[in-house]
Simulated assay, not measured.
Amino acid sequence: MEAASLENLRVLHHSADYIVVNKHWDVRIDSKMWYEKLTVQHQLKRRFPELADPVTYYGFRFCHQLDFSTSGALCVALNKAAAGNAYRFFKERLVTKAYLALVRGTVEEKEMTVEFAIGKNTTEGKTHMMCIEGTEACENPKPSQTVLRVLEYGTYEGEPVTKVLLQPLTGRTHQLRVHCSAVGHPIVGDFTYSLGKDNSPYRMMLHAYLLRIPLPKEPIQVIAPDPFIPDTDAKWEPQRTVQTVEGAMEAVFEEDAKDQTPKESGRVERQVSPEETEEQRARCQQWLCEWSLD
């Protein structure tokens, strides 16, 4: 991807109801700070001024979040009805997401399911971070689940790294970053969860590769091109392939097809939630209007 600018917005999908863009790394989705002009919000307003909705705070209804440092597929709803439809699919965990990452070290297990519960870190100076259950000052940890599949072994700037495909089965804040760190393989360039030590790469190596929303009238399945290839970054040198991205994606789709069947004990199931409470309905209405951060 070229350097981020207001004019440089890569569109992966565009219809009357949705836009999916390939978000740059180190770019915020939106900002209330008047001086922060390079955001996805401002890129959309520059590219599609006629589609901005003046009744919303940000002009566009973002269906989900990507961290500032993460690149890849990001979905935007273009009207309130489309936002409501997408909201329900995210709420019921019917959306499939897969991420590519380079992680530090050699991941021995070719496939693993990481199940550390994740909560808020209340330690002074670390309140912007999340933590796993059992960590000191970890508040309100919630069940979390990530499937990790090894793709390639190699080096980055001469240090051993592993290229992996990450499939989050839950949607906790910083989940992939926390889970990778918890198993001893932090994401390359993750300044926050390396406690400021991993600061030499030009970006954090985490990319939202697949976004699949099985909407009845307009199913969305978008792939944001893989940025972790030697032609893009010569410091990444693959040495041994375990499986291709395409092969790993087949496993993702197979897992996704089983989601409607009961899982063994301990697995996170995707089932229809009970009827919404008044509080949940109110939160949904707020989300439809201006994109809630929750």
Rank of each mutant, 00 (worst) to 15 (best):
E2G: 14
A4W: 02
S5M: 06
R10E: 14
L12P: 05
Y18C: 02
V21A: 04
I29D: 06
S31M: 07
E36W: 01
E36M: 03
Q41A: 03
R46E: 14
P49D: 08
A52G: 01
D53Y: 02
P54F: 04
C63Y: 07
L66D: 01
S69N: 11
S71R: 00
A81V: 14
A86C: 05
K91W: 12
K91R: 15
L94Y: 04
T106H: 13
K120Y: 07
N121Q: 10
T123M: 11
E124H: 11
G125S: 08
T127W: 10
I132E: 05
E133D: 13
E133M: 03
T135L: 07
P143A: 01
T146W: 06
T146D: 01
E157N: 11
E159D: 09
V161I: 14
P168G: 03
R172C: 01
Q175T: 09
L176F: 00
L176H: 02
G184N: 06
K197H: 12
S200P: 00
I229Y: 05
D231T: 14
T232N: 15
A234Y: 09
V242G: 01
E250I: 12
F253D: 14
A257E: 11
Q260H: 13
E269Q: 15
E269V: 13
S273C: 12
P274G: 08
T277F: 06
E278R: 13
E278Y: 07
R281K: 15
C284M: 12
W287Y: 15
S292L: 11
S292T: 14
